[in-house]
Deep mutational scan, measured.
Amino acid sequence: TEIRININGVTIHVRDASEELKKLIEHLLRLGADEKEIREVLHRWEK
């Protein structure tokens, strides 16, 4: 699944996002995570 996240005008594009990762990101956004925090989570997730 491919997702695009727009945070304050900055688009983060994620290829091959699992449903689990998608739910995690949606949850973090609801909690008010910023772009830097989302990128950090994505970076750690890929490892």
Rank of each mutant, 00 (worst) to 15 (best):
N6Y: 02
G32P: 02
H13F: 03
E19L: 12
I3H: 10
G32E: 04
A33Q: 03
L21E: 02
E26C: 04
H27E: 15
E2V: 06
H43S: 09
L28I: 06
A33Y: 11
I5W: 00
R30V: 15
E37D: 11
I25Y: 01
S18D: 10
K47E: 14
H43V: 09
K36E: 10
T1W: 03
G32L: 02
N8L: 04
T1R: 11
L21Y: 02
V10L: 12
W45S: 05
H27V: 07
I7D: 03
E20L: 06
L31I: 15
E26P: 00
N6F: 04
K47T: 14
D16C: 06
I12N: 01
V14N: 02
E35L: 14
V41W: 05
H27W: 06
A17Y: 08
I12E: 02
E40N: 08
I12L: 03
R44D: 15
T1D: 11
I12S: 03
H43R: 11
V10S: 09
L21R: 01
E26S: 06
K23M: 13
L29I: 15
A33S: 05
L24W: 07
E2D: 15
L24G: 02
R39W: 06
L28V: 04
I38S: 00
L31H: 14
R39F: 09
R4G: 08
E37L: 14
T11A: 14
L24M: 13
I25D: 00
R30G: 12
R39E: 12
I12P: 01
K36L: 11
T11Q: 12
K23I: 10
A33H: 04
R39D: 15
K22H: 12
D16W: 07
V41N: 06
A17I: 12
A33M: 07
D16V: 07
V10G: 08
A17G: 08
K23H: 12
L21W: 02
I25R: 00
E20A: 11
I5Y: 00
L28G: 01
L31F: 09
I5G: 01
I5V: 10
I25S: 00
L42C: 01
S18E: 07
I7E: 04
E46D: 11
E26L: 11
K23N: 14
L29T: 08
L42D: 00
R30M: 13
L31V: 12
E46P: 11
V10P: 03
E2C: 09
I25W: 01
I5E: 02
D34V: 05
I7V: 13
V10H: 12
K23D: 11
I12D: 02
E37V: 13
L29C: 06
R15W: 10
A33W: 07
E2S: 08
E35R: 02
E19A: 09
E19T: 10
R15Y: 13
V41C: 04
I25N: 00
H13P: 06
